[in-house]
Nucleic acid binder design. Structure first.
Lengths: 337, 337
DNA sequence: TTGAAAGCGCTAACAG
DNA sequence: CTGTTAGCGCTTTCAA
């Protein structure tokens, strides 16, 4: 005898009435309701949501796909998502791609089979993306996070503008010889946009942009990548824009170990605004993204789509902030050129 | 016409046969199977898991409840969980309590309604815990993470022993006047156990343990809490054990700003082993917990319980490691006593 | 090797 | 205000 039936039997009513007590209590006479609820409580009746979900054809589940949880920006984002979903009693089915592009479509497929009501996701690159094609075909509400591209609903900062702001900050401090570093792992549309922002600012200032210096973040080869600078500091850039704070932190650590004083010998600016940037000495100057809010707003936007309140396919840009801290200074005079 | 029916109709077979193609393909004649699979593909048939779950009475969903995702130890743990679940094609329904004890039972209740196959969770305090009572009553497989207490299956380090090891490291460096600091937020059985470990080591060495210094981590009152030390460094402890790395990092930053040299004027040891501890100067000496592995092993253990392979109600202790880095040194001679 | 049919637990017409 | 009933999409006996 199934659960709702048991309660109904004990209460001497039909299962429909029991169901109503939980879903539309105002339709049940107060006295009946109280009796049923009392019995339900005492029997520890726990409505089986699977039954409801099958019948209603919605699950109250939101599928979330992020690159990783180990990176604090995504962990914070997930926290923001949960906060927003909670207000509507929705739950988060969380998956990560571990930066493997091949997993994106697979994971989405699984989430769709699970009949999630909607999807919140970050893909590696919106430019050529099976996952996005899949979403375009399917009629599932979704909102992108961190990615932003014409014709897809998203919540993010404007990476290109943010990167330009970072470089302008360096230019304003007097730098001209500015390089940009990015990690392979972050090989993504965001890296590309940030490099474009770098180019924008350099060109606008009349400087030739340097090619992007890509380093293998995990494999500790940053050192060899930077060796040619260390070998010839006189010709090394006076300022470096790192595509993420995690990378910036590693770069700073390495440079300091090699006797490079920051910011006197080299200025560094990061990107993300991790709180850990404040722990190091000197504290990391960086562009801050509102990760928690990106998650929260994306979730809110998804909820609005589920309501039918939001039907736009546009990018929502949140503000980034330049956190002026201590790793950027003026270039030493002898190295300006 | 529902999906599986549509495929069946197009393939000219019954829905049972279509179902078999996905679940027990060997029961279907190869030719039939190929035909059906081809049609399913072309129709983009996506089995509705809700139907399956209702019928099979299992969901392949694991409920996860953690205090927060913003703390990297839990984010890493969640990553470990996902990794283990993935091998069995299970998914993670993730919730956080935000350190609110009152939410624990509520969240578990919700997860149970969602018919999760099992639960992985960290509670604030196993000593008086509605959530644990609830689990004891219900017949749901679960494994605790970070918590460990007699009679409940868990995966964690041995906090008490780990703390003792931390203190012994300080004692071995020559310290006698050692204090312990913990944050309110972390008010938990783990803090208590770590304090006990501190007491164990102090008493064994013949020193009187100091009362636990509790600070309000978020409200930036660490400063006022430490003021009496700063006012009178001669009588301040020569070494401090911080209950978490996040706290240690803040304490170090504060002390340094106040001109206290670490480790010369004061040694600091943390707890958790966050990678961010390596970024600061001097690098943070700490006790490392295997967060990813805690998550992974707990998930594996849960899977074993679902199999019936593991039915024990005991604590599985993983090894902690003392990371000897640079924030612990010998006390300056004039302050030994 | 396949099909028919029952039913997982619940909700929502519809009827009373 | 309450009950009856028909499914939601799927799996799994049982029978053929």
């Amino acid at each position: 005898m199934s659960d709702i039936r048991r309660v109904a039997a004990l209460a001497g009513c039909s299962i429909a009435t029991v169901s109503r007590c939980f879903n539309e209590p105002h339709l049940v006479r107060e006295k009946t309701r109280e009796r049923i609820l009392a019995i339900a409580e005492q029997e520890r009746f726990r409505p089986n949501l699977i039954g409801r979900q099958l019948r209603r054809k919605q699950t109250g589940l939101v599928g979330v796909m992020l690159p990783s949880l180990t990176n604090p920006i995504f962990a914070d984002c997930a926290a923001g998502i949960e906060q927003a979903l909670e207000t509507q009693h929705k739950r988060m089915l969380l998956t990560t791609t571990q930066y493997e592009v091949g997993k994106e479509s697979q994971l989405i497929e699984i989430l769709l089979r699970q009949q999630v009501d909607g999807l919140l996701l970050t893909v590696a690159d919106t430019a050529h993306c099976d996952a996005l094609d899949l979403l375009a075909r399917e009629n599932v509400p979704y909102v992108l996070m961190y990615n932003h591209t014409e014709g897809f609903p998203s919540v993010s900062i404007d990476d290109r503008v943010a990167a330009r702001d970072a470089i302008e900050h360096l230019l304003n401090a007097g730098h001209q010889h500015i390089a940009m570093i990015a990690g392979y792992v972050a090989a993504s549309d965001r890296s590309r946009l940030r490099y474009q922002g770098y180019e924008d600012a350099m060109l606008a200032a009349g400087h030739k942009p340097l090619p992007l210096l890509e380093v293998d973040f995990d494999a500790r080869t940053i050192e060899t990548s930077l060796q040619h600078w260390l070998d010839n500091m006189a010709n090394a850039p006076t300022a470096v824009f790192c595509s993420t704070d995690l990378l910036a932190l590693e770069v700073i650590k390495l440079l300091r170990e090699r006797g490079v004083h920051i910011p006197r010998d080299m200025s560094i600016i990061g990107f993300d605004g991790l709180k850990y940037g404040q722990l190091i000495e000197p504290t990391l100057t960086t562009i801050s993204q509102p990760n928690h809010e990106i998650g929260r707003r994306a979730a809110e936007r998804l909820l609005a789509r589920l309501d039918g309140t939001d039907t736009h396919h546009d990018s929502l840009f949140l503000d980034h902030v330049l956190l002026e801290r201590k790793t950027v200074g003026a270039p030493s005079l002898d190295r300006r050129r």
